[in-house]
C-alpha cells in the first residue's frame, strides 16, 4: 500500500506527472530494483557515491555490488541484505520512474526523505509504513491533526482504507482536510451509527467518482446515476460500516446501524465537529466525512 501512497505523494508534490506515474505503475511487474537504489535507500551510500559506482560499472564490466564491496562502500553482509529487499514496492516504483527518466535517483531519495519529514515520522514508523502497515500509515495521516486521533477513528479509517483497496481501488491515498464553509455535495451517501459512539458517516462524491465507485463495487460498468449506482455506493458504505461494527463488537462495544440515505445535491447536516478525509483514487477523488454526534 505504501507504493500507492508514495506514488500519490509524488504526484501531489508535482514531482511526477499523472502519465509518468501511471506508466511506472504499469511497469512495476517488469521492473527489478537495482542495487544503486537499494544501497542509497538503506543509507549505505550517498546518491553521488552510487552514481560513481554506476559509472565505474560502465567501464569495468563488473556488477554494482562487486565494485561497491571492493571499494569498501558496503560489506558482503549488507549486500546480501539488499538483495533480499529487491521486492519492496515503493523502491520498485522509484526504479520504474528512474528507468523511465521521470526522476533521478537523487530526486527519488530526496522525495522519500521529504515524505518522512512531512509526516513527522521516526525511522521505526517509516520502516513500518514502507512495509505496508496500514495502521501506521493511518496513524501518520492522523498525527497531522492531533484532535482527531481517537482510537475508534483510527480503526474506522484503517478499515476504510482496507475496504477501499479490497473493493474499489488499490491506488489509494488519504488526506485529512477541513470541511469548507457552505459545503455542498453532488452525491451524498450517508449512514448513522448509534450507540456509545454515535457517528454520522458519509461519502460525498461528484458524478465521476460516484459512477467509478459504483461500477467498482458492483463489478459491472455503470454509466449513469440511477437506482443501481445508488444501491452500489450505498451498499459499499453499509458494508464498511457493518464491518466496523463487527470489529467494535469483537472489542465488547455494541453499536447499531441505521439504513443509509442517498441524496443528490445536498448540504451536510448541521454538525458540531466533522472530519473530512479526501480519498484519492487512481482517477479522481471523493470525500469521506465522519462526525461524532451527541
Amino acid at each position: 500500500m505504501f507504493t500507492q501512497y508514495f506514488g500519490h505523494y509524488l504526484l501531489n508534490r508535482n514531482i511526477v506527472s499523472l502519465i509518468q506515474l501511471q506508466e511506472a505503475m504499469e511497469q512495476l511487474e517488469n521492473t527489478r530494483v537495482k542495487l544503486g537504489v537499494l544501497s542509497v535507500n538503506a543509507g549505505y551510500m550517498s546518491a553521488a557515491r552510487a552514481e560513481e559506482v554506476h559509472q565505474l560499472q560502465a567501464r569495468m564490466d563488473k556488477r554494482f555490488g562487486e565494485i561497491a564491496v571492493e571499494r569498501g562502500y558496503m560489506t558482503e553482509e549488507q549486500l546480501e541484505q539488499l538483495l533480499g529487499m529487491q521486492k519492496e514496492g515503493h523502491l520498485v516504483l522509484g526504479q520504474a520512474l528512474i528507468d523511465q527518466g521521470a526522476i533521478t535517483l537523487d530526486q527519488f531519495t530526496a522525495a522519500l526523505e521529504q515524505y518522512k519529514a512531512d509526516h513527522l515520522l521516526s525511522d521505526d514508523q517509516f520502516e513500518a509504513i514502507k512495509n505496508g502497515n496500514i495502521e501506521e500509515l493511518i496513524a501518520a495521516v492522523l498525527k497531522l491533526d492531533a484532535s482527531i486521533d481517537q482510537p475508534w477513528f483510527r480503526e474506522y479509517l484503517s478499515l476504510f482504507a482496507k475496504n477501499m483497496i479490497r473493493f474499489i481501488d488499490p491506488m489509494l491515498y488519504l488526506e485529512v482536510n477541513a470541511v469548507p464553509q457552505g459545503y455542498q455535495s453532488e452525491w451524498l451517501v450517508s449512514q448513522n451509527i448509534e450507540g456509545t459512539v454515535t457517528l454520522f458517516t458519509a461519502l460525498s462524491m461528484n458524478e465521476g467518482a460516484f459512477l467509478r465507485t459504483a461500477s467498482a463495487y458492483a463489478q459491472e460498468e455503470i454509466q449513469a446515476p440511477g437506482e443501481l449506482a445508488e444501491a452500489s455506493v450505498g451498499e459499499f458504505l453499509n458494508l464498511h460500516n457493518g464491518l466496523f461494527l463487527v470489529s467494535m463488537s469483537n472489542q465488547g462495544i455494541e453499536l447499531g446501524l441505521k439504513p443509509q440515505q442517498i441524496e443528490h445535491r445536498a448540504a451536510l447536516p448541521a454538525l458540531a465537529t466533522s472530519y473530512l478525509i479526501t480519498v484519492y483514487m487512481s482517477e479522481g477523488s471523493f470525500e469521506l466525512i465522519v462526525a461524532p454526534r451527541g
Binding site: 458494508l239 457493518g242 463487527v246 467494535m248 463488537s249 455494541e254 453499536l255 446501524l257
Partner: peptide, 25 residues
C-alpha cells in the same frame, strides 16, 4: 445475510429462530 454480524445481532437472530447467518460481502 448482513454486513452487521455483531455479537448482539447474532444473539438476537438465533433467539428469534434464524437458520443461519452469513456475513457480507
Amino acid at each position: 445475510a448482513s454486513s452487521v454480524g455483531t455479537q448482539s445481532n447474532l444473539k438476537e437472530a438465533i433467539k428469534a429462530g434464524a437458520y443461519d447467518f452469513i456475513q457480507k460481502p
